[in-house]
């Protein structure tokens, strides 16, 4: 589902090249759950951005659902994202002038799906916000906004979901609810999940954990317990 080979990213900074990610490689199968952990500035968000086709690598390659992203233009990558990818962000990234329902509708309307409103409404109900569809983001709490964000992420039935610190802006109770929902939805849809977090407890719920430090992978471990649960539940 996702194959990363020798991924390197460097920026020109103050006349020197600053390498933030160096020769990272891994491969994920469909329905895998995967966490990237590491301290601030270790390069984990950069890695997520590259995997999701939000940025271009300086070297190395990314294959997403068999499509090599490296040579695609930004607009071609946008089409790939719309087709195969879902996103969850730390700060929710809902469009402030759209209602909750309209926010969920965006990926469907971008695809030109007819009757998207019903799907979006079902998804909102699934995340427990069926009655809040006409509220604007500012009228929702942080947890509610992240749940709308979840509904939006699953709206286009993505093959792979990227989540960047999904609980980073939430309190402990709300976090737990959102995380539960995230894994439930993920399981139901059979989506591959890539999670960036420094919350080790959250990471522990995935089947595989990659640790990054200074732009390089320092460990890549399979979480036996989680993997077993996943195997059983599938």
């Amino acid at each position: 589902m996702l194959k990363v080979e020798n991924l390197t990213k460097s920026y020109a900074s103050g006349g020197r090249d600053l390498t933030v990610l160096e020769a990272v490689s891994f491969e994920l199968q469909a329905q895998d759950t995967f966490a990237i952990v590491g301290p601030s500035g270790s390069g984990k968000t950069t890695l997520l951005g590259l995997c999701a086709g939000l940025d271009r690598a300086s070297a190395g390659s990314v294959w997403l659902n068999g499509i090599q992203l490296d040579d695609l233009s930004e607009d071609q990558r946008a089409a790939v994202r719309n087709e195969h990818v879902g996103f969850i962000f730390q700060n929710f990234q809902l469009l402030p002038s759209l209602t909750a329902l309209e926010n969920v509708l965006v990926p469907l309307e971008l695809r030109g799906v007819r009757g998207g409103t019903r799907t979006a409404q079902e998804l909102l109900e699934r995340v427990g916000l069926g009655g809040r569809g006409h509220h604007y983001p500012t009228q929702l709490s942080g947890g509610e906004q992240q749940r709308v964000s979840l509904a939006r992420a699953f709206a286009n039935r993505p093959k792979i979901l990227f989540a960047d610190e999904p609980t980073g802006n939430l309190d402990a109770d709300t976090s737990a609810t959102v995380v539960e929902l995230l894994f439930e939805l993920n399981r139901e849809a059979g989506t591959t999940l890539v999670l960036v977090t420094h919350d080790l407890e959250l990471a522990a719920r995935t089947q595989r954990i990659v640790r990054i430090k200074g732009g390089s992978v320092v460990s890549d471990t399979v979480n036996q317990e989680s993997a077993e649960i996943a195997r059983l539940s599938s």
Partner: peptide, 16 residues
């Protein structure tokens, strides 16, 4: 800009 970035993320093309 922030809203545009989200739209781009969700798959809108630059011209859209």
């Amino acid at each position: 800009v922030a809203a545009v970035a989200v739209l781009r993320c969700l798959g809108a093309s630059g011209w859209q």
